[in-house]
Amino acid sequence: MNTVTMDLLRRGEQASVVRVDLANPSAKRLADLGFVPGAIVQMLRPGRPCIVRLSNSRLGLSDSLQKSVMLRRVGD
């Protein structure tokens, strides 16, 4: 099982959340917004910050947050 951080996703790729790094002070915020294990994330525009789709919302995430979300690519 290959986990990657969000900043490694390519445009259009989908992945499911494995966990959020609790060391990040924004961990609870991310979890409350729906970044919980199993949630599907699609990378809409990689970059710093990037745009992802999470369920039906579009969220902008800056660099440090992307690095603290571990995902598994869908299909891996």
Binding site: N24, P25, S26, R29, L30, L33, P49, I51, S57, R58, L59, G60, L61, S62, D63, S64, L65, Q66, S68
Partner: peptide, 12 residues
């Protein structure tokens, strides 16, 4: 110091 990250909703 490093500034904590941004998470912002981009509504339709």
């Amino acid at each position: 110091r490093v500034v904590p990250g941004l998470v912002i909703e981009l509504p339709n």
